[in-house]
Write a protein that binds this DNA or RNA. Structure first.
Lengths: 349, 349
DNA sequence: GTAAGCACTCGATGAGTGTGAGTGCTGTGA
DNA sequence: TCACAGCACTCACACTCATCGAGTGCTTAC
């Protein structure tokens, strides 16, 4: 990996300008851009030949490449990276788009439904695949547990989190447990855990209830055994909602059916995406852009990710976009950022 | 629509035999089958020319067609229908496949997760798109309601249904409601509704609680207003799980990218499928096969559906398969049927 | 360092052609 | 009346070949 920061000084004004033109034009047209075109339309005081020289330099440094001898130049991942960090201008989000987003958010009051629809809209506006994860509960603050007996030997556990999010889990109890006993255990748990995050609870639950072990029904023991299920974002709870497939297939890269397969792979295999988002989560910044091979995953090496965090009183989730590396970063980044903020505002009200 | 039953007598032995060969071979190979091929390999005592005559007759009656003058014959929807009803032999399900299904079903104990994984497996085995709906609650028998206050003005309503299925809905209450009042209202509702189906409740709730209207907090009024939300399969609850996209795109019909789009359309637009499944639900039979244009929907006119009902103590859902009309019906039908039964058994235990 | 000219490369396009599978039709013989 | 052999005809498909044009790389001149 070349150190991009170092490169900033190494590139002359002219080189930067030409790199800018190549990336910008390629993003717009998906066609490799040639020296003659730049000379004619964008950099009129330079001849095509001079531009070719510059391009050759840029290729040597690793910012550009070309698919075959007589084709125009195409940005490399590194080229995109430089473009994003130093050359690109962020595009203002249109008022109509802001309006559409707010209208969509207001429309439903079920949280998951809202996220799903927002994801669809995000895909539609950006013409890319969109991803939205449901809130990451482990940093949420425990408020209250409620135990409800269901037919036979089932027990419904309701866990409230401070922001108003509620999580329900069904547990299998060995035998029927009397109501007053349930209440008693519930009270104990509530007293001891209130104010902690789910993550803290998960890590210290056993210690905190050690002294109540010798009760009759083994209910506490059941809780200890199920602690992961109760206080972790289980696979089926922390959902990744993927939308906008029909938008992305209009992109010119998908005339080639083999690229098609890779997209299908992506939407069927949520695990890949979950994995990548985890990586993003470790970052400190609010939004993250990953270009092509910057994420090590082989299946996504031709795709870029733009994701942002939404934060609802400490409980966070992610929204983002996946698309070909040739992506309109200047437009997509503000869009994702805006949607993340809008979701946060919506969920916290 | 031609009356197929009538046709059964009208087709000679020879015509039936040749129709059988054409359909069977086309299903296997996806290549239009010609007279010469049949004469050489399948009907050795007939010359190609004679077979052509029979084929011409079958084409006139509407069972076959051919894409262009000098191509082999291809079944029409009507041809498939005749094949399914009279000619086809059901294939026994392999032991290894049965085993895979059971292992998959046992693996998870969360109901939705189980359905989702089963759907994936169904897609993998059949090489088609698979669909599974979550149980249709309106015919489920109400057992118990439970009201749980959440932070601020939210109320979690838990409705238990006799088979052990539980449904939770979050309601927005105007102001905080005291616990004893909640209990009281809960008790009233339980007494009056137990044993009824959700559908009955939805239709008669207002009448059944009319006399309790004059209570303080207006809680009953809230319930009356929310009755649809509470006792109907709301859009976000009755989920259609679609899986197996990456299996179906291996089918030869998807070399053409325009067919590609139609599949994407299908998986993004659950509504289309929900709509079609509703139609299927009205049928009395346990499994239903719809070929191509037999369902009137324009977007699915090149697809067939095979669906079966699973029944868990009166609460039902559907499993099924969607694929090109050229589908191995003899294998798929027993498969879908088997999976439906396996799911029912699993959920009721 | 910049520009101009020229040869070269390579993909895309399109016309032309041959091939093979398959049909439709007709005439003949049982 | 039915079976079938033969022949002409039709397409789709794959292949070749020539052409075109965009674009580069290199060399030379200013």
């Amino acid at each position: 990996m070349v150190d991009v920061d170092n490169k900033k000084q190494n590139l002359s004004e002219r080189e930067q300008s030409i790199l800018h033109h190549v990336v910008y034009n390629y993003i717009q047209t998906a066609v490799p851009v040639g020296s003659r075109y730049i000379s004619k339309h964008l950099e009129k005081n330079l001849s095509a030949a001079s531009i070719r020289n510059v391009m050759a330099d840029l290729e040597e440094t690793g910012f550009l490449s070309h698919p075959h001898t007589s084709a125009g130049r195409v940005p490399t991942d590194l080229g995109y990276r430089f473009y994003i960090d130093y050359l690109m201008e962020m595009q203002q989000l249109g008022d109509d788009e802001k309006l559409r987003i707010h209208q969509q958010l207001k429309q439903t009051n079920d949280a998951e439904e809202m996220l799903r629809e927002t994801s669809k809209l995000l895909g539609k506006i950006s013409h890319q695949l969109s991803i939205v994860t449901s809130p990451h509960l482990s940093s949420g603050i425990f408020e209250k547990i409620e135990l409800i007996p269901i037919t036979g030997s089932k027990l419904l556990v309701v866990i409230s989190i401070r922001t108003g999010i509620v999580r329900t889990i069904m547990l299998e109890v060995g035998a029927e447990v009397p109501r007053d006993h349930l209440d008693q255990v519930g009270r104990i748990i509530n007293e001891r855990l209130v104010g902690l995050t789910l993550k803290e609870i998960r890590d210290s639950f056993v210690d905190r209830v050690r002294d109540v072990q010798n009760e009759k029904t083994g209910l506490i023991r059941l809780f200890i055994e199920s602690v992961d299920q109760l206080f972790t974002d289980s696979k089926d709870r922390e959902k990744v909602l993927i939308g906008g497939t029909k938008n992305i297939i209009d992109q010119p890269e998908f005339i080639d059916p083999k690229n098609f397969r890779s997209v299908i792979e992506l939407i069927e295999n949520e695990d890949i995406i979950v994995h990548l988002l985890e990586r993003h989560d470790e970052s400190q910044r609010n939004f993250v852009v990953t270009v092509g091979t910057e994420n090590k995953d082989e299946t996504t090496k031709e795709y870029s990710f733009v994701t942002a965090t939404y934060d609802v009183g400490g409980v966070t989730g992610r929204v983002g976009i996946i698309g070909p590396t040739r992506m309109n970063y200047g437009k997509v980044i503000p869009l994702v950022d805006y949607v993340a903020q809008a979701i946060a505002k919506m969920l916290s009200s």
